[in-house]
């Protein structure tokens, strides 16, 4: 195949992938800026710009509260997951104890169960603990899928840190906690940022648990709140408001990813090749 054709084919494929992944979001933005009956016309370029939908969704009493709930839940989940994962990773990568690999496999196995399979059981636990209808129930439930991969990624990463550095710290008189906080953590920023961000996104987007464990409008998180947005009447689906809300909750994620972009790239490769 001639080089020109191969080049063209390659870029056509790239263009298709970009279009495929970006178009839905682009169309959401487009729709969120429309109003009235324009919503039901198919346009690929903005015709008129109106921020009425944004004003509407933000002035709707509970939506800002829902965003705040999501921020709280996702942040707390990330903080607790990373703390537990870092301390667990130290033990799993550096302390020799019987059943270590079995434990690692068990942790991984936890993420094997589909959410729907554990939903009923979890619901019982949440209710028994008196956490029903509170953000605590979500924080607890989200750990189930954030911890397995944070523990695994950080264990792999920590295992690749040179043993001599730890031994030098031991000789220098550092306790295990000092080693983790003052020697290992600074070296693990890329991995922490990557896993933290993935955990944040997972918690931010979660729908099923959020729908089941919380029934109160004030304590809902964003994905459920958006799904339950209703129009003036039963028959009207408020597409404009839904799209505006979607854009509002997607922008923080995009911003986070862009900010930490360089760290993520080094983090994703750091486990494989020692830098």
């Amino acid at each position: 195949m001639p080089a020109v054709l191969r080049q063209t084919g390659f870029w056509a494929l790239v263009a298709f992938i970009v279009l495929f992944s970006v178009f839905p979001f682009y169309y959401a933005i487009l729709t969120s800026l429309k109003s009235g009956t324009a919503l039901f016309r198919v346009d690929y370029l903005p015709t008129s710009v109106s921020f009425a939908n944004y004003a509407g969704v933000l002035s709707n009493g509970v939506f800002p509260l829902n965003v705040l709930n999501s921020v709280i839940v996702a942040s707390v989940v990330v903080a607790i997951s990373l703390f537990l994962a870092v301390t667990a990773a130290y033990a799993l990568s550096r302390v020799n104890f019987a059943g270590r690999s079995l434990l690692l496999l068990t942790i991984l196995a936890v993420s094997m169960f589909p959410q729907i399979a554990v939903l009923a059981g979890l619901f019982e636990i949440v209710r028994a603990a008196g956490a029903y209808n509170s953000l605590l129930s979500l924080i607890f439930a989200y750990m189930i899928f954030t911890l397995p991969f944070t523990v695994w990624v950080l264990t792999t990463f920590m295992r690749d840190l040179p043993v001599e550095i730890e031994e030098a710290a031991i000789v220098d008189g550092a306790s295990p906690f000092t080693i983790v906080t003052r020697v290992f953590l600074p070296l693990m920023w890329p991995a922490l940022v990557t896993t933290g961000l993935l955990a944040f996104i997972a918690a931010w987007n979660e729908f099923l648990f959020a729908l089941t464990f919380v029934s109160n409008n004030d304590t809902r998180t964003v994905p459920v709140a958006i799904a339950l947005l209703s129009g003036a009447s039963e028959q009207e689906v408020p597409w404009g408001t839904i799209m505006a809300a979607s854009v509002i909750v997607t922008v923080p994620l995009i911003a986070l990813v862009l900010i930490f972009q360089r760290k993520i790239i080094s983090g994703l490769t750091a486990g494989g090749v020692k830098g």
Binding site: I170, V171, G173, P186
Partner: peptide, 20 residues
């Protein structure tokens, strides 16, 4: 006794400096 209380210091083959 821990290495620290033994009063030893060690130089490693791979230097083992704290990179950060």
């Amino acid at each position: 006794m821990s290495p620290k209380r033994r009063g030893i210091a060690m130089v490693f083959q791979s230097y083992a400096l704290y990179p950060h």
